[in-house]
Amino acid sequence: MDNLRFFEIYRSSEYLGLLFDGILISAGLTITAGLLGVVLALVLASVRYWQVPIVDRFAAAYVDFIRNTPLIVQLFFIAFGLPAAFGYTWPFWAHALLALTINFSGYFAEIFRSGFASIPVGQQEAAAALNLSKKTIFRHIVLPQTVVTMFPSLSSQFIFLFLTTGLISEIGVPDLTHAGVFIDSRTFRSFEVFITLTILYIVISLMLKSTLQIWFRSTIGKRVSD
């Protein structure tokens, strides 16, 4: 263990800068795709809840499709397949953001769908007996309870998805994994580099997780726990 060379590697401000930029890109893309994905997922799950003719079939197929294909194939398809077919060029990060948003939305939509479906029959009957419209039931009974009960699932799914975003390095996005792989190829100090990546991913995951928890407790969760 006395031949570890952390200091030598990170003496180079170039490598530190790459890691720093990698963190920003990984976290930034994950958070942006997470937010967009939640919105898209709510739309998808709502369409299915409301049984919008035809569209609900598409939403169901979309979710099944996303959840049953590998992220790496989705990435390659969006970054290389579609541009090859339609002849457009986007920056790498835009391909990554689109692919991650689509990927996240599929998983989040399934969580929302199961939440919408888990409102107890008794509450549905009470709502029916009170003559509440489907719109009121959805907005005031189904949605608020789903957001609260499904938050832990959404949060842990989000962290899991963050950990899969290292794959965007494969389409050339200079994310955290990409930075690590690059530094390793220059220095051949694989142990030091990947220990560093491991620690950085753990730290970012825990930070994302606790930020979500604090946000939840101070906003939505506040009503439930007091």
């Binding site: 509450q123 009957e125 009170l130 003559n131 509440l132 419209s133 009121t136 009974i141």
Partner: peptide
């Protein structure tokens, strides 16, 4: 009125009563 009450658990007693009045 139901055997299991079937109140909406995320709403206060007052809000359980007012929901239909304001929304419908």
């Amino acid at each position: 009125v139901f055997q299991q009450f079937n109140l909406f658990p995320h709403l206060s007693a007052l809000e359980n009563c007012t929901l239909a009045l304001t929304e419908e």
